[in-house]
Amino acid sequence: MAKSSRKVPGLNASSMADVSFLLLTFFLLVSNMDVDSGLARRLPPPPQSEDQSSVDVQRRNLFVVLVNAQNETMAANQHGTEWYANEAELRGEVGGKVALKDRVKEFVLNTSNSPDLPELEEQDFGAPIGVVPVTAAHVVSIQNDATTSYKAYIAVQNEVVRAYNELREEGARKYFNTSYGELTEEQQKQIQDLYPQRISEAEPKNYGGGQ
């Protein structure tokens, strides 16, 4: 007697696409993705002409902060040079070194009117600040080696920005008797004009690790 061949019933796969889509949506919603956070700092406006990019900065107006391949930091201007081996030294916590932020503040203010620091010129910032001598041409130049670690570079960035933040906080309390965060937008603009963030970031280069 011949065996009858049975046909295997076909599977209904019409809903597989919907299930796959739901699974994909689920994993997208519950998965954590690493996102690089940027620096909380307002960038300077773009130059008005190509000529401005070629303006020479006098040596006394330039403060160079260089991070080398060994993640060591050199801070140098006409007033002197300091080397920082790690983040603790950057913050002035060990080694008896002056913190980087304090060196930046000294450079920006030039309260002693030193010829080695940026030249002071009087500017009117409006009431209640009035006419104040400021270093209008100062520039903090941050440079790094192509192999500098991201952590070391950000640590230097943080210290330089902290210097400007402290100057603005001190200015707010001196002229408005309150914290910078409590000022109106117009008052904050006055303080920003008084202490503008003049930070230049150069393209990474292969400087090497030697001092």
Rank of each mutant, 00 (worst) to 15 (best):
S4M: 03
S5H: 05
S5Y: 03
R6L: 10
G10Q: 06
G10C: 03
N12Y: 01
S15Y: 00
M16E: 08
A17I: 09
A17T: 11
S20V: 11
L23P: 02
L23Q: 13
T25P: 00
T25N: 13
F27T: 14
L28R: 06
L28D: 05
L29V: 11
V30N: 04
N32W: 08
N32F: 10
M33L: 14
D34E: 10
G38S: 15
G38Y: 07
L39C: 13
R41E: 08
R41W: 00
L43A: 13
P45H: 01
P46V: 08
P47Y: 09
Q48D: 12
Q52C: 04
S54V: 14
S54Q: 15
N61T: 02
N61G: 01
L62R: 12
L62I: 00
F63I: 00
F63H: 07
F63T: 04
V64L: 15
V65P: 07
V67T: 12
V67L: 13
A69I: 05
A69C: 11
Q70F: 12
E72G: 10
T73E: 04
M74T: 11
M74C: 12
A75K: 02
A76Q: 15
Q78T: 03
T81Y: 01
E82R: 08
W83N: 07
N86R: 07
N86K: 08
E89W: 00
V94S: 08
V94C: 02
G95M: 02
G95E: 08
G96V: 11
G96M: 11
A99R: 04
K101P: 01
K101L: 05
D102N: 15
R103C: 00
V104T: 01
L109W: 00
D116R: 10
E121L: 07
E121D: 11
E121K: 10
E122D: 12
Q123D: 01
P128K: 04
I129H: 00
V132R: 08
P133F: 07
V134R: 12
A137C: 07
Q143M: 15
N144D: 11
N144F: 06
S149I: 09
K151I: 10
K151D: 13
A152P: 03
A152Y: 05
Y153F: 15
I154G: 02
I154F: 04
I154Y: 01
V156K: 10
Q157K: 06
N158S: 09
V161M: 07
A163S: 14
Y164G: 11
Y164Q: 10
N165T: 13
E166M: 11
L167K: 05
L167T: 05
L167W: 04
E169T: 13
E169H: 09
E169P: 05
E170R: 15
E170S: 15
G171S: 15
G171I: 05
R173D: 15
Y175Q: 02
Y175V: 07
F176K: 06
N177I: 03
T178A: 13
T178S: 13
T178Q: 14
S179V: 06
Y180F: 13
E182I: 03
L183K: 02
T184F: 04
Q188T: 01
Q188V: 01
K189Q: 14
Q190K: 13
D193M: 14
Y195M: 04
Y195S: 05
P196H: 00
P196E: 03
Q197M: 10
I199D: 06
I199F: 04
E203Q: 11
P204Q: 12
K205N: 14
G208H: 04
G209M: 02
G210Q: 11
